[in-house]
Write a protein that binds this DNA or RNA. Structure first.
Length: 428
RNA sequence: GGAAAGUUGCCAGAGCGGACGAAUGGGACGGUCUCGAAAACCGUUGAGGCUUUGCGGUCUCCGAGGGUUCAAAUCCCUCACUUUCCGCCA
């Protein structure tokens, strides 16, 4: 949520920044108008309340003095004011709700550092490691899609997953299941130097989904357990961001770094028919997320660190990848700046987005009411939040299997995963 | 799922219609004393909105929401959570 005061005081700048997203600045003018109106009515309400409070004190005094007649006169006066107060207070509340509703739908301001652009095509590649999609770099035995490899080796059983749960659900078996687990374990182990491991709930309240910006705008993308008013999380970002909701952190505790492996659930409502084969787009998958709460001053350095950590994992798995600086028009709703890591996977001959590392400035923290207090300073400030996928299983699983397929059809297990493979060095 | 008790500031805990944003104790911070520290003593110590160049003014918040009243931490209703007991259970 953007700070209303910022809309009030820097209207043009906010409008211009939002304009860079390309999807219009819609209700911004309406917010400004309602806010103006609300402050006026609020002032009026507070004046009446002040008057009522004063009268009530006088009534108390008069009654103690035994002057019942005078007290009753004051009561009558106060009663009339009370009626007006109720009416005006109702208007304030109503406008307030309207403003909040509008604000919840307005996306975050892109960072000035985010490149210009309207579409994914305008994202800026800032780094490439390995051969990427150079056709000369890949052998025929690597040009087999993971669903074929998985079936051949008996490590991926999509048919039975569909029997249980329907299309776009998956099931790993044997060494395939081991690989899925090993990837998560590796991601957690490599970040345990600086991140606290958390195992949060995967089913959460509406308020928890609102805090990160997943609701109210994107309700169609999430699984909803209506009977209990709960939502299945699309990412561990959701519970981890609410961990500190409505709390005031100590500046000395910042940055606060958390990581969690959870199942992630996505309805993929808007992407029917795309990437339906194999593991590229699925309804449920495991992911290790790394997240930080920070002061504004710490944010840039942390953002770079999260990216470096996500990147080093991909590199350690021997995958070829590129890093994209997302343009303003392609940023997620809540993000001010995002770097994506895409792995090139030779079997499917595609760049796969495997990680998204974002800085949300104070957008989520304001929704979630997460503040911090500096030693000695008066009052509190809104914190910043950042997060990134350290490792999302299905696409990385696919890339590992396709990249490391040997001429004899077996899969070489990357060295960093060997500790989790009970002595095996290959999948066959 | 059933029953009982509870939810007040950083913590403990009082208050049970009017002088209560809230006693008291502890903690933390600052000061006096001291070569320094401890002890003692003094002081400060919640969050937020609107307004103001500033001093300040004003409103809201005692789990949440509603109600009664001139006036609610205090009375009434609903809900959530916590603890204990019973039931069920990986």
């Amino acid at each position: 949520m953007i700070d209303v005061r910022r809309i009030r005081t820097e209207y043009e700048a906010v409008r211009t920044a939002l304009g860079r997203r390309g999807d219009g600045t819609g209700e911004l003018a309406r917010v400004l108008e309602l806010d103006e109106q609300m402050r006026q009515v609020m002032q009026e309400r507070d004046d009446i309340r002040s008057h009522v409070n004063a009268l009530s004190k006088e009534v108390g005094q008069l009654r103690r003095d035994g002057d019942v007649a005078a007290a009753e006169a004051k009561q009558e006066e106060s009663r009339e004011l009370g009626e007006r107060e109720r009416a005006i207070a109702g208007v304030v509340d109503q406008i307030g709700e309207q403003v909040r509703e509008l604000l919840l739908h307005i996306p975050n301001l892109p960072s000035p550092d985010a490149p210009d652009g309207a579409h994914a095509d305008d994202n800026v590649e800032i780094k490439r490691v390995g051969p990427g999609d150079d056709p000369a770099a890949w052998a025929d035995h690597q040009r087999v899609p993971h669903w074929d490899i998985g079936t051949e080796l008996g490590i991926l059983d999509l048919e039975r997953a569909v029997k249980m749960s329907g299309a776009m659900f998956t099931m790993f078996r044997k060494q395939g299941a081991t690989l899925a687990r090993a990837l998560c374990q590796l991601a957690l182990d490599r970040n345990s130097d600086a991140f606290e491991e958390v195992r949060p709930p995967t089913v959460v309240l509406t308020e928890t989904m609102i805090s990160t910006g997943h609701l109210p705008k994107f309700a169609d993308d999430a699984y909803h357990l209506e009977r209990d008013g709960l939502w299945a999380i699309p990412t561990a970002e959701v519970p981890l961001t609410s961990l500190a909701r409505d709390e005031i952190l100590d500046e000395s505790d910042l940055p606060m770094r958390l990581m969690a492996q959870t199942a992630c659930f996505r309805r993929e409502a808007g992407s029917a028919g795309r990437d339906t084969r194999g593991l590229l787009r699925v309804h449920e998958f495991d992911k290790v997320e790394i997240l930080a709460y920070a002061t504004p001053a710490q944010a840039a350095e942390l953002h770079a660190d999260l990216l470096a950590r996500a990147e080093s994992l991909i590199a350690a798995l021997g995958l070829t990848y590129r890093v994209l600086d997302l343009c303003a028009g392609d940023l997620g709703n809540s993000s001010a700046r995002t770097f994506d890591i895409e792995v090139y996977s030779p079997g499917v001959d595609q760049w796969l987005e495997v990680s998204s590392v974002s800085w949300f400035s104070d957008y989520q923290a304001r929704r979630a009411n997460i503040r911090y207090r500096s030693a000695g300073a008066k009052g509190t400030e809104t914190a910043h939040t950042l997060n990134g996928s350290a490792l999302a299983v299905p696409r990385v699983w696919a890339a590992v299997v396709e990249t490391h397929r040997q001429p004899d059809g077996s899969i070489r297990i990357p060295d960093v995963l060997l500790p989790y493979f009970r002595g095996h060095t290959e999948i066959r």
